[in-house]
Amino acid sequence: MATPHFTVHQPATLEEALDLLGRHRASVKLLAGGTDLIMKLRGGAMSADHLVSLNRVGGLNRINYQDEDGLVLGAGARISDVAAHPDVRKHYPALAHACSVMATTQIRNMGTVAGNLANAAPSADTAAPLLAYRGSVVLVERGGRRQVKLEEFFKGPGLTVLEPMEILEAIRVPVPPGRAGSSYLRLSARSQVDIAAVGVAGFLALDLDGCMMGVRLACASVAPTPVRCPEAEAMLEGQRPDPRLLARAAVACVRAARPIDDLRATANYRRAMVQVLAGRVLQKCLSMAQGGAQ
């Protein structure tokens, strides 16, 4: 475990940052909050001769909500700021919750939601609620921009569709419909402050007949990437809420999980917990949707 050596570049604009990425393409990484990157570099899990810091790029830390366009989180938006933002708390409570319970205060003050996604840890806490809210990511390179749905973004542990010369510039989340409910529950088997051993997020809305629509369920820490649960979603879509149906959907969520045994939990336990948490998340979503205008 020798100390990693690298040069740190601190561009003031995104263009400069893209230039630097290109110039040092042979061995370069982007630095945002650094909470994962620095550990990976020190631990030898990753190496780079150059780091391009996004922390002095103007305008990147925006958190912006508009009733037409929904939510935009800049790549520099800190997890703690997202957690505390009134619009996020109002329209995306499951995301606000994920951002307020993950890691520690210090790490939330340093880390960014974009970094949490770009690291592509299977346990990324913000990924499951953003999947449930139909989030997408805006990727920029010198040639231009593209928008990728979050469910198409993750490729494996630590792997995404990001090209080497691309920067995750922002996260976009559409405006949720009215009469909707959403929730994120995480569980770590030992302590309150922990990497989630299992996380489940859900979203659903009710139509005028009281049938569920736009149902989304997503899990973290139970597969190589954060995953959606399409089978469970399909079972619920267009149906009237019924406790037995919700329970069956929770069981179906387990089939989306491909968990492993690791330090934090066994695969068996994770599977069982996906069902428990999915059941609770659906209940919570439903009562929120039934309870109010949100």
């Binding site: 740190v8 601190q10 909470t35 550990m39 703690s80 520690t104 210090q106 003050n109 340093m110």
Partner: peptide
């Protein structure tokens, strides 16, 4: 490793783990 908090300092009023913060930042 950013887990224990003994290195907590404030940068521009925000608490951070100084062991995970590059000094150049």
């Amino acid at each position: 490793q950013g887990d224990c908090g003994a290195c907590t300092v404030l940068i521009n009023g925000r608490s951070v783990s100084s062991c995970l913060t590059l000094a150049v930042e």
